[in-house]
Write a protein that binds this DNA or RNA. Structure first.
Length: 241
DNA sequence: AATGTTTACAACCGCAGTTCG
DNA sequence: GCGAACTGCGGTTGTAAACAT
């Protein structure tokens, strides 16, 4: 049977988001959290589909995003991880707190790929991705564990990075996992692979958890992030209710 | 200054996985 | 166990700014 489209696209706006739309979405999520993306646009007064709202939030509006150019250390790390993981951008993004998989994918495709080509190197990496031979379908469940286990045997080095907003995802995890202590004073290190195995939620997912946890005091992270958000990108959020 | 081309990034599409009734 | 709804992911396309002519 055919799959229903994610939304009724008739009358929905597409393309670049306006400042006003960003405001509406941010405002809504900060005030209400996310229960169901499908309902977000309607409740937030947006003529967008839920999927589009989710993407906009995840890739652009999330307060914990680190924006700006990739450092050389990050690029090196990216090349290293790509040679191990292949195009599994979400997995790679887990090593770059504050970066999105989309951002990493774009950066790879537009810059690093080109750089490597200029150097006469194969952008796909000298060695096949470690999951090569695995069926893509097997990436869930055991598949990921294999990847992580293999990586854990030969972990990539930790690279220190500064969070622009002075927060890290593990800040929020600390309440449930006191053993994590990477993020003191707004600094963090990339998680080790054993960390990854232990806690599959990093950067992106940690934020989701906080939004989605109904028990969690939403104002906790909202208060933490709101200052950086208000000043971010010159957008005036004085209308925040 | 006008036009064409390139580049970087944002956004969309469609499929697969997960969750839930 | 099944199917529908929902979410996440990766590939691809669109778009606007930067640059070249």
């Amino acid at each position: 049977m055919g799959r229903r489209p994610c939304c009724d696209k008739v009358g929905l706006k597409r393309g670049t988001w306006s400042v006003e739309e960003d405001q509406k979405l941010t405002n809504f999520i900060l005030c209400n959290g996310i229960k169901c993306w499908r309902h977000v646009p309607k409740l937030a007064g947006l003529l967008r589909c839920g999927k589009s709202c989710r993407l906009r939030w995840m890739n652009y509006l999330r307060p914990d995003l680190k924006r700006g150019a990739f450092s050389e250390a990050e690029e090196d790390q990216l090349v290293e991880l790509h040679s191990r993981l292949g195009n599994r951008w979400s997995k790679i993004a887990a090593f770059f707190p504050g970066r999105t998989d989309n951002e990493i994918k774009n950066h790879w495709n537009t810059r690093i790929k080109k750089k490597l080509n200029l150097l006469g190197l194969d952008p796909q990496g000298g060695e096949p991705p470690i999951e090569q031979g695995e069926n893509r379908d097997a990436k869930e469940g055991g598949g990921d564990i294999d990847v992580d286990q293999k990586l854990a045997e030969n972990p990539v080095s930790r690279v220190e990075t500064r969070h622009d907003h002075g927060h890290s995802c593990s800040d929020h995890n600390s309440s449930t996992k006191a053993s994590r202590e990477d993020s003191d004073a707004g600094w963090s290190t990339f998680p080790s692979l054993t960390d990854l195995q232990f806690d599959s939620c990093l950067s992106r997912s940690s934020m989701e958890k906080y939004v989605l946890q109904e028990d969690c005091s939403e104002s906790y992270w909202i208060d933490d992030y709101v200052d950086s958000l208000l000043s971010w990108d010159g957008i005036n959020f004085n209308n925040l209710e």
